[in-house]
Design a protein around this nucleic acid. Structure first.
Lengths: 342, 342
DNA sequence: CTGAAAGCGCTTACAG
DNA sequence: CTGAAAGCGCTTACAG
């Protein structure tokens, strides 16, 4: 059954309507509905009934105008299509929802003009704060406009160290990955990375090399930078097999690269994980669980990153604004490509 | 350089401030800023200067309160994590952005309680309309609350035929896919589908079978329903090779299934596309372009679907509300798995 | 405990 | 061309 629609041309009920129906003043109706004291139980009930009867829904615009706070925030993404924005967005939406905040979503599509336009619109709607989600972990310029509400940068940190930025811990991720491989008994570890132009690739490599050094191990060959794609994984694995065939693990810059590596290893007769352990980064489920064997990966906890950004913004609204770059921890998700029988 | 932040404790400038600085009344300032006639050029300029000097940004809440329209819409998703919501959301955001609308994003996470709560919040914010994005193409119950603004259902149609729903054309997609395979010279076509529980799987199969019948062809074997995953593609392809080895094309229920099919065919010595043409649905780039050979697929045009929903809502706001289910066309994206040398 | 009044920031007839 | 006044829907001191 469809709910009965509101009568044609029906005006949304206002507090005045409720007050009239309950036989009280708007002031009293307001207090009754908002649980203020100094209202008799009987009145309170009468007002509540009237409100229910009229399906009264308080106008947030009017409230916001009075309060100076609107209970809204802006979420400004620079690249919604990129697969990293989404979980961040989900985490933020989740955290805000719990705090009764509503979220304006704006996608600047990597265009500075469009970004400025969106910021202007959000400011005009008097958002209480702003989260700026970048499309890579490379630093980005701070917002162009002078913004008088708190701003938190997520994923891509602001170039201005005075701003508050929440970023994934890619160095820690590289370190953690190598530690996992070592724990699996591997000592001849190669690193086939992604696009060198991304700090994510360089940071992960730096963490991986540091962990190897800490363990007294040397990497097999140089870090192989290329692209984030499967095709690069296939090509790089073939080169590795030709040049440095004596390895027992490959750490890959992304799950896609890892998929390519897995394919080449299988075709060249190397068993995974018996002969070679393979792992990726990002824990993109469609990639990791479809693989043969399923792929061990590092989850960057992006949803948690979104939640953290939201909480940081929450704190900044009305309180002192935090500064500097904070990182969110990642974690290894173990599957068959490093652990037999998983 | 960081933009200079607003002075500590600075109050956002109001129209009253602008008027005072320009030496006119707020009424005149309002008219000047909004391009109303009956304002002298000199006054207009003086007000504009004052506004610029104070970085005046008109308060949308106050405007919305007067106008009865807020220029905001709600986008209610039931499953943000699903990969189909995102392009729809992008398309809608795009279309609304062009229309100066701001978009509230709410994720109900498939929970009816949470959905009701979000709808209530959106109504309280006086959105001008609502788009409800489903997580599958199966019909969903209409919104529980009586909503007095236009609602457009996207992807998942409403169970109430009186509602307006915009959905992808899965039957047409199945038809189009088979027509492409036939155009590639294939006549022995098998269909390995996805999860039978989804109308998307059944609709695509129905379209495919209809196109085969139209061409006077019979499908190779029964439609093989399973899951949407790669693993099913691998298993189903193996069974097909055992039972009905005489085929020259496989239409797959999803790109993931197609990836699995490609793997099994390669390992069993069938060349793609020379011996067997393979195609998938959804055109999920990470799947299609990483495949060997790259995968031909059907793009369901979800971004266009989002744009269409937004435009439909736009029309419904202030005008007569459309009714019934409308479909959005899809298109074949040709790659190497059906066309050699692509 | 209840209500009249002022005001949040803006726009829109209506006089001058 | 310009401005005083009313009002959008609500909340909050302040009297009664």
């Amino acid at each position: 059954m469809a709910p009965s629609p509101a009568p044609r041309g029906a005006r949304t009920a206002t507090l005045t309507d409720v007050a009239r129906l309950a036989g009280v003043s708007v002031a009293t109706a307001s207090k009754a509905l908002n649980g203020r004291n100094h209202v008799s139980a009987a009145t309170r009930e009468r007002v509540a009934e009237a409100a229910a009867q009229l399906s009264f829904s308080p106008n947030s615009l009017a409230r916001g105008l009075l309060a100076g706070r609107t209970g809204t925030v802006g979420l400004l993404t620079s690249d919604l299509v990129g697969r990293f924005s989404l979980p961040i967005l989900m985490g933020a939406e989740d955290a805000f929802g719990a705090g009764e905040m509503s979220v304006f979503l704006c996608d600047a599509r990597g265009d500075a003009i469009r970004e400025r336009h969106h910021v202007q619109a959000l400011l005009s709607r008097r958002v209480d704060g702003l989260i700026v989600v970048g499309s890579s972990t490379d630093p980005r310029p701070p917002l162009a406009a002078a913004v008088d509400v708190p701003v938190v940068y997520a994923y891509a940190p602001s170039e201005n160290p005075e701003d508050l930025s929440i970023v994934p811990d890619n160095v820690g991720a590289g370190r953690m990955a190598v530690e996992h491989l070592i724990a699996c008994g591997r000592t001849r570890i190669a690193h086939i990375s992604g696009d060198r132009g991304f700090s994510a690739a360089r940071d992960r490599a730096a963490g991986a090399l540091a962990a190897l050094a800490d363990a007294g191990l040397a990497p097999v060959g140089e870090v192989a930078y290329g692209t984030w794609q499967e095709g690069w994984g296939r090509a790089a694995a073939a080169m590795l097999l030709d040049r440095e065939p004596d390895f027992d693990a490959v750490l890959c810059g992304s799950d896609q690269v890892a998929r390519g590596v897995l394919d080449t290893l299988r075709e060249r007769g190397r068993r995974v994980p018996e002969d070679v352990a393979v792992m990726g980064f990002d824990d993109w489920r469609v990639m990791t669980t479809g693989a043969r064997p399923q792929l061990t990966s590092v989850d960057m906890n992006l949803e948690e990153l979104g939640r953290t950004a939201a909480r940081a913004l929450f704190e900044a609204i009305g309180a002192e604004h935090g500064r500097g770059v904070r990182t969110v921890q990642c974690r290894v998700v173990v599957r068959g490509s490093t652990a037999p029988g998983t």
